[in-house]
């Protein structure tokens, strides 16, 4: 006896989990009567079981590394962006430093002209500022691109940027004397001022040094 093809097709529907209740009932009924179909069905079930018994395989250890090596090179931009994302604090600090250095260096380069903070009693001769003998200058003196000769007395700090100071034996400076002749000195000087200003902000001191703020421009 040759069984109708539909039973084979029902078996596969059953294995795929898509058989209807009615078809399943017919299939079961037929399998009970037909040893040939029954063994066919068992062989199919065995096949499925064998396929499912295959162990899972693993790739070699360097698989991912090999793939990554073979990828086309990424844009450099992405690498930098990733670094920024991973180090937000360092990024902020770097950005701050870069901007600060930039502004300081440019402020070093920008002033070629001879300037001196406007002070009473000061005499200016050929880019040289003179504190005359017997005179007393109150407050700080800042000279840029020029020299200073101190014969009298200064009650404050003296700063010479890009120039030289001559202190006569009778001259006297109560504060600090500083000569700044290089970019790094300049930056250091600016930073000191910057942090001093911040310090003042925090201590609430409101000393405004009006004298040193007024700057006379010569030339």
């Amino acid at each position: 006896m040759v069984c109708p093809d539909k039973y084979i097709s029902y078996m596969h529907e059953y294995l795929d989990g898509g058989i209807s209740v009615e078809q399943e009932r017919q299939l079961k009924e037929h399998l009970q009567q037909c040893p040939k179909c029954q063994s066919h069905f068992h062989e199919l079930e065995k096949t499925v079981a064998l396929l499912q018994s295959t162990g899972s395989l693993k790739t070699s250890d360097n698989f991912t590394a090999k793939v990554m090596e073979s990828l086309p090179k990424e844009k450099r931009k992405a690498g930098i962006q990733r670094w920024f994302r991973r180090h937000p604090l360092l990024t902020a600090a770097t950005l701050f430093l870069v901007l600060m250095m930039g502004s300081m260096v440019s402020s070093w380069n920008q002033g070629d002209e001879f300037t001196v903070s406007k002070q009473a009693n000061l005499v200016v001769e050929n880019n040289t500022v003179i504190v005359p003998e017997g005179e007393v200058v109150e407050g700080d003196i800042v000279v840029r691109n020029g020299d200073i000769r101190i014969e009298g007395k200064v009650n404050g700090n003296v700063t010479v940027v890009n120039g030289e100071k001559y202190l006569a034996s009778v001259g006297e400076v109560t504060g600090e004397i500083e000569e700044i002749n290089a970019v790094f000195d300049w930056i250091w000087y600016q930073m000191k001022n910057f942090f001093a200003a911040i310090g003042e902000l925090f201590t609430g001191a409101e000393e405004t040094k009006e004298q040193s703020q007024e700057v006379a421009v010569f030339q």
């Binding site: 991912t64 793939v67 990554m68 990828l71 990424e74 844009k75 992405a78």
Partner: peptide, 12 residues
């Protein structure tokens, strides 16, 4: 976005 390292995790 161009981050190649992220692809490594997908491969894994």
């Amino acid at each position: 976005k161009g981050d190649q390292n992220a692809y490594g995790e997908i491969v894994e």
